[in-house]
């Protein structure tokens, strides 16, 4: 096959299947190719082969955690969960303010008192391996603490804040692997997340913060300067 010889019919079909799989066709050509999928199983098979063949490129991309709210929105859109503020707080009197609430409140207080003053120690939670990372800039301008219990990680901003129009992005660094973005740090308060599959908590892992454009790195790779890196230490 040289650059000059026209493609054979078989080659043209194969190329068309590739173009359809890649989303390169438009207009009438695209419509025809899509229509052909349902009448020509061999062609549909070729398109699927191209999807399989090229998916390897996507599998090579560095995973980027989506913010936890994305999952909540999906649940809401599918009617799987009510949003935290879905019920109107002004609507009716909540039960705990009514007469039953007063009685319930009394028992709740009694139960709490019982737990608090009970001679036995009931408050010890089952211990889970935990790690901690203290991220601080060299000049002391910012400090962020990450606490990992099991696979749940809580990251809290302690001091400092990104510049206007910038955000701090959290990265998971493991030996011999590309950095994985764990998302963008909220400007106030903290964030809690579950570690994505493939990341294993260990004292060999490190957490880093990079300074990125608002909303986080547009490419999924750290683009801004890394402002702090810290190792996970056993708690």
């Amino acid at each position: 096959m040289t650059e000059d010889t026209p493609l054979s019919d078989t080659e043209t079909d194969e190329a068309l299947a590739a173009e359809l799989a890649l989303g390169l066709l438009d207009g009438a050509e695209a419509e025809e190719a899509v229509a052909r999928l349902s009448t020509d199983p061999a062609f549909a098979g070729q398109v699927r082969e191209w999807q399989e063949r090229l998916a390897g490129l996507a599998e090579g991309l560095t995973p980027v955690m989506a913010p936890a709210r994305a999952r909540q929105y999906i649940r809401e859109r599918l009617g799987h969960a009510e949003s935290p503020l879905a019920s109107d707080p002004a609507e009716g009197t909540p039960w705990w303010r009514g007469p039953i609430g007063v009685i319930g409140g009394f028992f709740a207080a009694a139960a709490i008192a019982f737990v608090l003053f009970s001679p036995e120690d009931r408050t010890t939670p089952p211990s889970q391996p935990g790690y901690r990372a203290e991220l601080a800039a060299e000049d002391g301008a910012m400090a962020v603490e990450a606490i990992l219990r099991g696979r749940e990680m809580r990251i809290a901003m302690q001091s400092g804040a990104p510049d206007e129009g910038r955000d701090w992005e959290v990265w998971w660094l493991a030996e011999g692997a590309d950095p994985v973005s764990l998302g963008v740090l909220p400007r106030e308060g903290d964030m809690t997340m579950m570690l994505p599959e493939g990341l294993e908590p260990s004292s060999d892992a490190r957490i880093a913060l990079s300074d990125e454009p608002e909303g986080g790195s547009p490419t999924g790779q750290a683009t801004g300067p890394v402002i702090a890196v810290a190792e996970l230490t056993d708690m």
Partner: peptide
């Protein structure tokens, strides 16, 4: 949980915009 970080990377790679990628992921 098992696949969203990878699919987020795919849409982000194409859209190069975090908010739009997040919406697309949904």
């Amino acid at each position: 949980a098992a696949t969203s970080a990878k699919l987020h990377a795919v849409v982000l790679s194409i859209l190069k915009d975090r908010p739009e990628a997040e919406e697309t992921l949904q």
